[in-house]
Nucleic acid binder design. Structure first.
Lengths: 249, 249
DNA sequence: ATCGATTGCGTAAAAAATACACATTCTATT
DNA sequence: AATAGAATGTGTATTTTTTACGCAATCGAT
């Protein structure tokens, strides 16, 4: 509890590192610098969003970048990603997945920087507060304006990975509130995958998997017949996990 | 053509870097060193093999390691992996896929080394020559003795990735000769996936995908009825590529 | 009480995956 | 020349999964 508070204080004290400080860090000693970049996904108003910040490089001014930072010498890779997430969203327990490492020689104007890309899924209801940063904004994934560096490519690959992965593993739930309707779930999948699905078959699919707990509650404050609320049964899933077998391409 | 020859000569001149030289390179300037490690798969005598070399660290003597090297300051990530492949197998055009980056603080005894793991698929018929290196050997994937560092974990993840990927994309053919029988293909899949399949359904599956070119040739020197030989039709595949859509976990 | 919108449910048809058996073709042997 | 051994090549019935599609019930708003 106390730790929580301390963390929050630290969080407010964090300032975005300026370009020049990064540049000096990079050029001081190491020929190759290492960073992590996070594609932070959220789901709000039935749209898939990504958290971006305004670039602090003149060359890339008015362009958006992913949230990232140099990896500290005594820091695990994943921890660096978690640190960024904590800094930017205030959230500790988030779904995080490493996707790919980008290392083109000229990808960063400040010198040789190789970056490990992650994506993470957060429940937008849980943070709200810490977005009031300088230039931090949620962007519709369908509608992203120009990005700095190779961040568009990084984003594309992370998004593609999410699209693939969400069809094979139950991670979408990380983007939803704990209690959700089946309609919420379908909206989520449609937003992530970018196409509409048949409502009846979607329901059938999820009910037949039998990983949803019927909470015996219904939606509140909807201007129509309210739907039932569900929760994902992770422990049941862990036991029944499907092993993949089938050739198809 | 000339280039080819030159490369071969260079290859023979390459010596395995000693531990102490790596250590000094790492500790000289950079707080974090970067390497690539390659899980090189081959398919021989109906078994899936991986190319390993004996560790040159005392601490890990008698243990096997993946083939890897530090990334050069002016070298693209993928190029570093290709360089290793060229060095060790003499092959230029190999299937290569980045899998994951490993960065635990203590993973390497020489200091902080973050490594980008790749796997690659090579046709064992095409190299043979260059394995006559000091301690370079093909190992059955089912039967790997202790590995140094975190290389067992790296291997496991790369192998898992291959198993997954080979079911969704036509990469297995990189492990086969250009002309192969359907039996060869099935043996390959069984070796990679680790289970037996029904021969008739396997054939049906591949024929229905319609990506195999019937070469109108048959196997030679088999002690039984020879099978027909086929080739994979990459250009047709590229046009018809399947887009994945279906939720299942 | 009615309208509008959405939920909840079931069935028929098509497609894909699985299980399973026998005749054919070639090599090697007698 | 005949035969045995071994693997190839093919087809069908069954089950499972996916897709397409329609209607009654429920709730809020008017």
């Amino acid at each position: 509890m106390l730790k929580q508070v301390t963390d929050s204080k630290n969080l407010n004290a964090i300032k975005v590192k300026s370009f020049s400080s990064i540049q000096s860090e990079i050029q001081s000693s190491n020929p190759i610098a290492l960073s992590v970049d996070c594609v932070i996904f959220g789901f709000d108003e039935n749209k898939l969003k990504v958290l971006l910040i305004r670039s602090d490089l003149k060359k890339y001014q008015d362009k958006w970048t992913l949230l990232g930072d140099l990896i500290r010498p005594e820091e695990d890779l994943d921890d660096a990603a978690y640190r960024i997430l904590k800094q930017r969203t205030g959230l500790n327990d988030v779904y995080l997945e490493q996707v790919e490492t980008f290392g083109k020689i000229k990808r960063h104007p400040a010198g040789r920087v190789i970056t490990v890309a992650y994506y993470s899924l957060i429940n937008v209801q849980h943070h709200k507060l810490n977005i009031l940063d300088n230039e931090l904004h949620w962007h519709d994934v369908e509608n992203i304006s120009e990005m700095a560096f190779d961040h568009q490519e990084i984003f594309n690959n992370c998004y593609a990975r999410l699209q693939k992965r969400v069809q094979e593993h139950p991670l979408g739930f990380n983007l939803l509130p704990k209690k959700f309707s089946l309609r919420d779930l379908q909206n989520l999948y449609e937003a992530i995958l970018g196409f509409k699905m048949d409502r009846r078959n979607f329901r059938k699919k999820f009910f037949s998997m039998d990983f949803l707990i019927d909470l015996e509650e219904i939606e509140q404050n909807v201007p129509h017949r309210p739907g039932k609320l569900y929760q994902f049964n992770y422990s049941k899933y862990e036991k029944k996990k499907k092993k993949w077998a089938g050739i198809d391409f």
